[in-house]
């Protein structure tokens, strides 16, 4: 799953969380999935930042 897909799904879940859920399990499942997606996005951003830092170092004169 790439960052854009993760973001799309996360936005959709955050919207759904503002409605009344069908049942408790669905509510918990949505929260858990949202947490998972946020962790994924953070990890991806951190990875990108590290990659950029490394590139910057390698192009430093």
């Amino acid at each position: 799953m790439n960052y854009t897909e993760a973001q799309a799904e996360l936005e959709k879940i955050l919207e759904q969380l503002q409605e009344v859920p069908a049942d408790i399990d669905q509510l918990h499942a949505r929260v858990a999935r949202a947490e998972q997606l946020i962790a994924l996005c953070r990890a991806k951003l951190r990875g990108a930042a590290e990659e950029v830092a490394r590139l910057r170092e390698s192009t430093e004169e």
Binding site: Q7, I38, A48
Partner: peptide, 23 residues
């Protein structure tokens, strides 16, 4: 850096929103 910061900000907001929305 700007793009990464913007993306980071957004994820932070989403995280805050999730915290607010969690039961």
């Amino acid at each position: 850096r700007h793009q990464l910061e913007r993306a980071g900000d957004r994820v932070r907001q989403q995280s805050m929103l999730l915290n607010a929305l969690r039961p």
